[in-house]
Simulated scan of single mutants.
Amino acid sequence: MTATSRADRRRATEERVLDAARALFAERGFEQTTVRAVAAAAQVDPSLVMQYFGSKRDLFSRAVRAPVESLPPDGPDDVVDRLVESLTLKLGGLPVSTAAMLRSMLTDPEAGDHAREMLGRQVESVAACIPESSDPDLRAALAVTAIVGVTLGHQLLSLPTLQDASVARIAEVFRPAVEALVQPLRSDGSASS
């Protein structure tokens, strides 16, 4: 039998609480999730949740914290591939922390700040791969937020047309739009790369 330390038990309890919080925030959003509901789902006392996390806001911040995807500036072709791949991964199922953040970002200022920061870094990464002479920041912001929109429509709103289409078909139809944004046409009519 392996003895577990007090610190190990605490980490396991924190993770159980965070997992429960992610699931509830993803399902209900920030406003409709209570500390009592999180505690019940994690099978702990609500006072323990407060002891470990301090407040519902701090619990939410920890629950939605997710690593930011970074696109290396390997050029527009690589960025198109990575953006379309990112969309297909998101349509396959969002990580619970991402779903929680997306569901809450329009009603909770902190979730909105977190989303803005995460998406801002993605926009910067994409913009670094677009020729400077063609509004790289705007083009990158449009590409990244278009992916967010498709993801919201598919994962959170369950729009029938998006639900009925395969992920591969959505990616196939969406790819030319991403290419048009990331690989703007040169004055001679050819795509820049």
Score class of each variant (00 low, 15 high):
residue 132 E to D: 14
residue 148 V to W: 00
residue 85 E to H: 05
residue 192 S to I: 11
residue 130 I to R: 02
residue 65 R to N: 12
residue 79 V to D: 03
residue 130 I to N: 07
residue 119 L to P: 00
residue 142 L to W: 03
residue 176 P to D: 06
residue 16 R to C: 06
residue 140 A to G: 07
residue 171 A to D: 07
residue 68 V to K: 01
residue 9 R to N: 14
residue 125 S to I: 08
residue 132 E to M: 05
residue 4 T to R: 08
residue 116 R to K: 13
residue 112 G to I: 10
residue 186 R to H: 12
residue 169 R to W: 12
residue 15 E to I: 13
residue 77 D to P: 00
residue 39 A to M: 05
residue 27 E to K: 07
residue 81 D to L: 04
residue 31 E to D: 15
residue 165 A to I: 04
residue 124 E to M: 05
residue 52 Y to D: 10
residue 32 Q to C: 07
residue 63 A to Q: 00
residue 107 T to E: 14
residue 73 P to C: 09
residue 144 V to W: 01
residue 150 V to E: 07
residue 187 S to A: 13
residue 48 L to Q: 14
residue 24 L to C: 09
residue 37 A to E: 11
residue 148 V to H: 09
residue 15 E to G: 12
residue 34 T to Q: 03
residue 108 D to T: 03
residue 173 V to Q: 10
residue 122 Q to H: 00
residue 157 L to H: 15
residue 82 R to T: 15
residue 23 A to H: 13
residue 85 E to W: 03
residue 94 L to K: 05
residue 44 V to M: 05
residue 117 E to I: 10
residue 2 T to C: 01
residue 161 T to E: 13
residue 72 P to I: 06
residue 164 D to W: 02
residue 135 D to H: 13
residue 80 V to S: 03
residue 68 V to T: 14
residue 108 D to M: 02
residue 39 A to L: 10
residue 141 A to R: 15
residue 27 E to Y: 01
residue 70 S to K: 05
residue 167 V to P: 00
residue 143 A to N: 04
residue 147 I to F: 07
residue 61 S to P: 00
residue 161 T to V: 13
residue 18 L to P: 05
residue 122 Q to M: 14
residue 177 A to E: 11
residue 97 S to M: 09
residue 28 R to L: 15
residue 4 T to E: 10
residue 73 P to Y: 06
residue 185 L to C: 08
residue 38 V to E: 03
residue 94 L to Q: 06
residue 28 R to N: 15
residue 15 E to Q: 15
residue 64 V to E: 05
residue 57 R to S: 06
residue 35 V to I: 14
residue 119 L to F: 12
residue 154 H to G: 02
residue 159 L to A: 14
residue 105 M to V: 09
residue 49 V to D: 03
residue 96 V to Q: 15
residue 64 V to N: 02
residue 100 A to L: 04
residue 124 E to K: 02
residue 167 V to M: 03
residue 88 T to S: 14
residue 126 V to I: 12
residue 170 I to F: 05
